[in-house]
Design a protein around this nucleic acid. Structure first.
Lengths: 244, 244
DNA sequence: GGACGCCGAATTGTAAGACAATTATAATCG
DNA sequence: CGATTATAATTGTCTTACAATTCGGCGTCC
């Protein structure tokens, strides 16, 4: 159990403070100086906490205006996470399992809401259309994530959607090496899924979506096999030191 | 475009630095002092950046060892999702939906793993036994959360478990007013669920668990009806400290 | 009387220096 | 050779100070 630093404690206290006061995005917080006094730490420690939270958009700071509560945006989070993907490896199998649980778990509600509100289908359709028009890989990657996030968000279960945003960000790197023929397959799969949902058949849609996500699992196995045979050839890899 | 603060610039430079050097988790970074000199800023600015990245687990810092590239963990990121939860204040219905999706979503894997490893059943059983011996409400509350967390953790999908831990915490306040007769029912429900899982019948277990969680939904409707007629003042009782 | 600009004060942003806390490495002793 | 202690390097925290930014009011000019 790692000991928490003061700035982390301050961050935690800020959270409970926000909860206690029932603060909503936009509400003002005490100034750094007041927080320092209230928490019994120096302004530096408070700053390290608020600054870190500021990176994530959780708090907003400006001179003279002071601190205020921001809105946590997964976009913001993913900005700082993005460069880390190349380095960190979360086990793909578990990520896929997670995706399947979260995405398929919302499907019944998506179908229900779709029946009441046709615009949900239209939105999903629009994203998939945009995906068809994508030419650059970056466009496609973004659209792919957007589709799956919108799908879960369409369930109306916002907590689930927030978590899913995060998972998608983690997953992004595995999508990177997809060939163009796979794109087309994926887009067809999306269309099948939302069309099936519109008919109210969420069970078939669940099977389709599960298959759609499981494609990555097969791909990963191939990659690993390749890596193994390559590794067998040269087995003396030591990572370089970091100092300049 | 908002002007970037120096610490944000430092964070960005750290990114290009890491990418250029091709660093992997565990690799060492220059010290705060060296970075400050290299980037032409004070150590304070460097610290604000590394601290923020440290919150996310992207960098790891320890005295004498210095800075190193860290491994991003779902658990770590869940801490920031908790801010999201705190600020968003989701209605109970959505939390229940979330719980159902996450907890039932893991059941198939729990059953599979249980077949291979009987100790999983034993552990769940032990927690439920402890629950039977509980006398104080606080004991029961803790045990209840422990059971549901262990259940999801038993699926072996760690990201899902991390998220579930979070949901349980936010759900806890709704459990507070349960009567003792409900306890007994809940414990019987737990037993049924794990016994059914041991038989490998995860589908029946899914139905049982869904029902078990849905009990809270009914209760909430009653409470709301009462609250409407009373139209009482709101009580915001949340106390907490930084958990380790 | 109203719009415009300017000035001052409050607050965050950045800096430098010092010391405490922690821990990896080296030195020492049995 | 192993365990223990000493040392040094590095982060963690505090204090103080000042620069940068911006909000609010005040005065001036039309």
């Amino acid at each position: 159990m790692p000991k928490l630093s003061k700035s982390e404690i301050v961050a935690a206290k800020l959270r409970t403070y926000s909860i206690n006061k029932g603060l909503k995005p936009g509400d003002r917080l005490p100034t750094e100086g007041e927080l320092a006094e209230q928490f019994g730490v120096s302004r530096v420690s408070v700053r390290e906490a608020t600054k870190a939270l500021g990176f994530l958009g959780i708090v907003d700071a400006a001179p003279r205006r002071g601190l205020s509560v921001g809105k946590v945006s997964m976009k913001r989070l993913s900005r700082y996470l993005s460069f880390h993907f190349a380095l960190a490896d979360y086990p793909l199998d578990e990520l896929i399992d997670t995706r399947i649980v979260v995405e398929t778990g919302g499907l019944r509600r998506v179908a229900e809401r779709m029946a009441k509100d046709p615009s949900i289908y239209e939105q999903l359709n629009a994203v998939n259309d945009k995906l068809r028009r994508a030419t650059k890989k970056s466009e496609w990657l973004q659209g792919e994530v957007e589709f799956h996030c919108l799908l879960v968000a369409s369930s109306g279960v916002r907590a689930l959607a927030a978590f899913n945003d995060l998972v998608q960000v983690f997953f992004q790197k595995f999508r990177a090496g997809f060939s163009k023929s796979r794109w087309k397959n994926g887009i067809r799969g999306h269309q099948e899924i939302i069309d099936t949902l519109r008919k109210g058949d969420y069970q078939t849609a669940t099977a389709l979506l599960t298959e759609h996500i499981n494609v990555h699992r097969d791909r990963d196995k191939l990659l690993k096999k390749k890596a193994r045979s390559k590794n067998a050839a040269k087995s003396g890899e030591v990572s370089g030191s970091a100092s300049a």
